[in-house]
Design a protein around this nucleic acid. Structure first.
Ligand SMILES: [Mn+2]
Ligand SMILES: [Mn+2]
Ligand SMILES: [Mn+2]
Ligand SMILES: [Mn+2]
Lengths: 231, 231
DNA sequence: ATATGAAATTAGGTTATCCTAATTCTGGCC
DNA sequence: GGCCAGAATTAGGATAACCTAATTTCATAT
């Protein structure tokens, strides 16, 4: 009766490891280090080593683990990680659009609930949102059973000067940064140009169609991702 | 900044124990036995004993535990248990009305999610549902920070013969029974009379305004709760 | 080729929650 | 008052997911 799930179901903890490996590995799927995982997950490195050994021993294996040389996700690990990313982004959009959360409130709630909703919940939320493509922070919502497409995003802090850019997404994990970004008007879809780098770790930026520019800290510019316009 | 929560936050497991003690104790708040808890929670009795000792040792204590003589909830335990009941019933109604779950699908999902939603989630769901009073099975949704009112419900199996009754609620835990109840038309609010008890563990029941009666099993009649009409 | 410091692993321990097997308590019945 | 069956508890152990302290490995810089 119960169909075999496409992606293995995991504990909350394992799910968080898989998602962290996915996100730290980037689109090139580089091997991720123990230390990077420990920092991201706020645990100590021996906890990471222990968990990686378990994930590699699982049948089917969720990661390829080479002692002292980091981990990568297997196909099974990737399936589960992308499923959680889909849950996360659908939940964020649902919390924002239906339950009227502000965009800085959605992340923490989604981060917890993504592990506990059923496939049915996922499907119904997608349905009432009209199979959405983009979450409140501009992130692409993967299709069911698929990895998300990926754009060539660059943090605003590394974008070339005097070159038009469009904001594609913003980091979702820092509520204070999100409030600041909203206050300044750097919403996904907005066009802008970086006019110069200032000594004081800040950037002078002008939003398309606005007369005067503004200064934002490099820290904040690391939270804003841009692409070439009109892609 | 973060206000002290009105009810202690608990693990999923502890929450399930507290809710089970609340529900098994009934409105008279009788002491609940180790065995009853073990059955309800599908764990072995030594697990229950161990957990009860922990709940009693917690500061503030969540239960009053007398070795060999069962447990009762303390005020703190009751607060948490009722909070979870509120979460559960709000979630069931939300899943049914907003996400279009059928009434036999809502229980299991709510049983899990009730432990993981935040106060904000609870409040927003209540708001979009218009501060509802009754869940899809006819159960009263407690107000925030309060125990639910309670009615003098009786299982249909124990209602006097030939005496008009109104269905107040139905048991929410058994999907197959719920589908049967729906098929037969025993929805909360429906009026009926029990015409007789038959030998074959069944009841002959006539729904108000319907010409002919029907037979339902005593098992099913244990899942349907009734009160005197027009209360 | 070797030394060294950062990164990673191993060793050993804790807590939460569950289990089985063994033991003890309790309430009713003669 | 003593016996018994069922209920409950204690004893001892497993597993998941953490931790600190000790040790090992790796990459690089002389
Ligand atoms: Mn998470
Ligand atoms: Mn997001
Ligand atoms: Mn539950
Ligand atoms: Mn219900």
């Amino acid at each position: 009766m119960a169909a075999k799930p496409f992606a293995p179901v995991t504990s909350e903890s394992i799910g968080d490891y898989l998602k962290a490996i996915l996100e730290l590995g980037g689109s090139e799927e580089l091997r991720v280090t123990t230390k990077a995982l420990a920092e991201r997950l706020r645990v100590r490195t021996p906890s990471v080593t222990g968990m990686l050994q378990r994930l590699a021993a699982e049948r089917p294996a969720l990661v390829v683990y080479q002692k002292h040389h980091g981990v990568q996700l297997t196909a099974a690990g990737k399936r589960r990680a992308w499923e959680l990313v889909r849950h996360h982004r659908l939940l964020e959009l649902f919390l924002h659009d239906v339950l009227k959360y502000s965009w800085d409130e959605v992340h923490d709630e989604a981060e917890r609930l993504e592990h506990f909703i059923s496939e049915r919940f996922e499907d119904r939320v997608a349905a009432i949102l009209g199979d959405p493509e983009i979450d409140p922070h501009g992130h692409i919502i993967p299709h069911k059973y698929e990895a998300a497409a990926c754009r060539d995003e660059v943090p605003l802090a590394r974008w070339a000067l005097q070159t038009p850019a469009t904001i594609s997404s913003v980091r979702d994990r820092d509520p204070a940064a999100l409030r600041e970004i909203e206050r300044l008007g750097f919403m996904p879809g907005t066009g802008l140009v970086v006019e110069r780098r200032n000594a004081a770790s800040s950037l002078s930026v002008r939003i398309a169609g606005q007369a005067d520019g503004m200064r934002i800290s490099l820290d904040l510019a690391e939270c804003i991702f841009v692409i070439a316009p009109a892609g």
